[in-house]
């Protein structure tokens, strides 16, 4: 039994660090874990996807269309863009944060502000206002760890010291804020 998770956001939102923490935790719990990321050009304000698969034995590291059990989107339209990857009956966790792509700034495309409502209706997407929670805690940057909290809760995993792991893996100065964000994510 393999669980496939796709994390998607915009370059700079911390999707890769989130995936690293999650995969480190899953590996310590004894699962076989593979994580795949595509970077390079996508760092410059483009879409960033990381894919994580875990189970008893994982072969291919990447997730095809219709194969993700769970999609975690750090930005509203990125949830929409990732929708083809969702398995029928799979779940979406998403922030409603909006980051305008160049195509919208230049007027070449329109931003679908109602994407969160649409995804709630279509697949029962759960909206976590992680960006707003993070800002209320003092730094927008802990958005990713807030979403990690919601993700850990959604996965319904055995007991594990996630807070200890987060403390080791985020920059030392940000530990307290990230732990607060993580707890808010667990409650959300």
């Amino acid at each position: 039994m393999i669980t496939s998770i796709l994390l998607t956001g915009v370059g700079g939102q911390g999707t890769i660090l989130t995936t690293k923490i999650l995969s480190a935790g899953l590996a310590r719990m004894g699962y076989d874990v593979k994580m795949s990321e595509i970077h390079g050009m996508s760092q410059r304000g483009g879409t960033v996807n990381t894919q994580l698969k875990f189970g008893d034995k994982v072969y291919a590291p990447n997730i095809g269309e219709g194969e993700a059990d769970l999609i975690v989107a750090f930005e509203k339209t990125e949830a929409l863009r990732a929708l083809p990857y969702l398995k029928k009956g799979g779940a979406i966790l998403m922030d409603r944060k909006e980051i305008m792509p160049l195509s919208v700034l230049t007027g070449a495309a329109e931003y679908p502000h109602e994407a969160d409502k649409e995804l709630e209706k279509l697949v029962g997407a759960k909206v976590i206002p992680a960006g707003e929670i993070a800002e209320s805690l003092g730094s927008a940057k802990s958005q990713n760890i807030c979403l990690l909290g919601a993700l850990v809760k959604a996965l319904d995993l055995p007991q594990f010291d996630w807070e200890g792991l987060i403390s080791q893996m985020v920059p030392p100065k940000t530990v307290a804020m990230n732990l607060a964000a993580f707890r808010k994510g667990l409650e959300a």
Partner: peptide, 20 residues
């Protein structure tokens, strides 16, 4: 069986990498 996917009538605006 081929994987079933869900589709939406909305489209996400393109987000290619851009100058910072």
């Amino acid at each position: 069986e081929s994987a079933e996917t869900v589709s939406s009538s909305l489209t996400a605006p393109p987000r290619p990498p851009a100058l910072c």
